[in-house]
């Protein structure tokens, strides 16, 4: 599953992720990382069966952990044109058989590519 970490500027230089990987012996995949003046934000893919332990470990080390919504397509805005499908590098968005828009939220890596392409601005990323 996907979790987002946020940490303050002081903690950016600490090896939080490596510590947790070693401590929990977990395979953690870094999908997106961003460091700015307001601190660091990292999107991680963690194994489902170890998720609880991993989240606890991160919190212990002072990182804020956000679990839950990654992306949403706002239903009454979306006109189901499908343009976002062609922009998604990980096939998180797709057409159902009847041309409705399907979304596999867990696949989304929050790359932003679809956001400015949506003609009705129906896509919302969380944690922005």
């Amino acid at each position: 599953m996907k979790v987002e970490l946020r940490f303050s500027t002081e903690r950016v230089s600490e090896p939080i992720i490596s510590s947790v990987i070693l401590q929990e012996k977990a395979q953690i995949n870094i999908l997106r990382a961003q460091v700015s003046e307001d601190g660091g934000r990292v999107l991680l893919e963690v194994p489902d069966n170890q998720a609880d332990e991993i989240i606890k470990a991160f919190r212990k080390l002072g990182a804020e952990v956000i679990v839950g919504k990654i992306i949403e397509i706002i239903e009454d805005k979306c006109i189901e044109c499908g343009h976002c499908i062609t922009l998604c590098p990980v096939n998180a968005i797709f057409f159902e058989k009847d041309y409705s828009i399907g979304l596999d939220e867990q696949k989304c890596i929050q790359c932003d590519s679809c956001l400015d392409a949506c003609p009705t601005r129906a896509i919302k990323l969380y944690g922005e």
Partner: peptide
């Protein structure tokens, strides 16, 4: 079908209009 071949490459294609709404 969602795919066309351009320059020997499979390219993802979708409408900008809505087929579902047209229906």
């Amino acid at each position: 079908s969602g795919k066309i071949v351009i320059d020997n490459k499979e390219v993802s294609v979708t409408p900008l209009s809505s087929i579902k709404k047209a229906r």
